[in-house]
Design a protein around this nucleic acid. Structure first.
Length: 203
DNA sequence: CTCGAGATGGCCT
DNA sequence: GGCCATCTCGAGT
């Protein structure tokens, strides 16, 4: 694929990367996933569900950079999540990688995801996917289309068919309605969970 | 399968 | 101080 495709907005790019291969050679170990579920996030001032909504900050700076790079962030005090930056530089849209099927490096992925009881769960969920691939904040900003990068994206000539478009998992507030979660017909697609409110427990 | 709750810490106002 | 683009486990239907 050309970088040109990634210059479009995230909601246009998202369905096209279903079925794409994400190749990780982090730590000298090769693991490849075929993407089965993604979500689109918009830029500053346009998508209340996006990290970029309130403008550029140290954490989300990569989103404002050129398309085709990885935006990797830390959340919930323990998890990493990975995105593909899309759109022209400055627009800050991105595609969150929510799930995939391990197609190479099964042994490595299993060793990294000891809590997964079945292979289907190895990269079923955004934080599980980053663990299976060995991704951390060190990968933030890498060029996914550079053949020398430790993390690369190879988009399928024919994307997987989109069988469902739903609201985004875990996104609440004003961004909750936007149907920007794109799902293929595959058992590795993660279970949908609505945003949960974290009110302080009574007691 | 569904639901609920704890873990755990950075980010942003 | 409040809010997370989540995961895991246990217990219930």
């Amino acid at each position: 694929m050309s970088r040109r495709t990634l210059y479009q907005s995230a909601e246009r790019v998202a369905p096209r990367v279903l079925g794409a291969r994400l190749v990780s050679e982090v730590g000298g170990e090769r693991v490849v996933v075929r993407l089965t579920e993604v979500e689109a996030y918009g830029g500053a001032g346009e998508d209340p569900g996006s990290h970029a909504y309130l403008g550029k900050t140290p954490r989300n700076a990569t989103m404002f950079g050129p398309p085709g790079h990885a935006y990797v962030y830390f959340t919930y005090g323990m998890h990493w999540c990975a995105n593909i930056v899309t759109g022209p530089e400055g627009t800050a849209s991105a595609v969150l990688l929510r799930a995939g099927e391990i197609v190479e490096g099964l042994d490595v992925a299993r060793a990294r995801r000891l809590s997964a009881r079945v292979d289907r769960d190895l990269a079923r969920g955004p934080a599980r996917l980053t663990v299976a691939l060995g991704l951390t904040g060190e990968l933030d900003g890498v060029d996914l289309l550079d053949s020398t990068s430790p993390l690369r994206l190879e988009v399928a000539r024919r994307p997987l068919p989109v069988v469902a478009i739903t609201p985004r998992t875990g996104v609440g507030g004003a961004g909750a309605m936007t149907p920007w979660r794109f799902v293929s017909d595959d058992p590795t697609v993660s279970p949908y969970r609505a945003a949960v409110s974290r009110g302080r427990a009574a007691r």
